[in-house]
Amino acid sequence: MKKTIGFPRALFYYDFYEHWQAFFEKEDFEVLVSPPTNQKIVNRSLKISENELCFPCKIYLGHVDAIINEVDYLFIPRFIDFGPKKCFCPKFMGLPDIIKSTFAGKIAQNNVEMITPTIKGKRNIYQKMRELKEITSDLKMNNFSTLKNIAKQKNISLSNKEITQSKQVQKGKVIGVIGHSYILDDPHLSMNLLKQIKNKNFQYYRPAMFSDQIIIKYQKLDRKIPFWYYHRKYFSVLLYWLEKDLIDGLILVSSFGCGPDSLVNKMIKIEKEKYDNVPLLELYFDEHTAEAGINTRLAAFFDLVEGGDRFASSNISTYG
């Protein structure tokens, strides 16, 4: 019988799932992904999680809870960094430990094993092999033959989707959306933000559309740019957008209690001040966010973007 590996549909799922799924299925495992976020999962996650965690982290616990009874393994990598000055949030670093202590009873009861490779260091072949080795030893697979198989398939990469070419379609007004994939790609969490933008016939850009190479362009600036991997990219992408005049409006999406966001969003706002003609909307999502509030603000923002230069110099208050 095939063994099942549980993959919670939250946090790094949106950036890193595809390659890992391909890998596990090739090695003859069944991958069970938790269902898309729904109100039941949200309610459950609020019950079981430490209440100071940020909302996406809480959701992660809810997703784990949804599948923990049906799997043999739980796949929860420990993201440390992607090389110097590209670290992850402490909650990513401690995630396996948080899961282990929150679900201690259920893990013991269902005999679930955790696969927790440590993702650390520059994204080169050595690091990836080390991570693979950790995974294979956690899965008690035959190390040598697996590694040999993987070495043969050179195109397998266990990092994020590597985009080599930045997509740029200029048609109509373009809105830049800066926010974590785990908020934007989760329709329940972000109240269908991206779809709403599309329905209004706006184009949107988001950091995930741009390659990581963009970081290199801005890291030699004579200033300190954020050292979290995600935020380093967001900030570089923002500088790129503003420099090339690619966007007509900017939406900052963040979740309540996100640590890095609290500082970096301020930095982004300071940077944006230099470009007067870009209206800004700042949205915070958490368990108390109501759809009506978001929709009103979005509608007002869309009017502003459409209205163009008439209102250009003023920002919308984000406080309602």
Binding site: E50, C89, S101, T102, G259
Partner: peptide, 16 residues
């Protein structure tokens, strides 16, 4: 409030 490293610790403390 919102200290990230200590939140991780706080989530583990009940188990300890």
């Amino acid at each position: 409030f919102t200290c990230m490293p200590e939140i991780v610790a706080r989530a583990i403390i009940p188990e300890v």
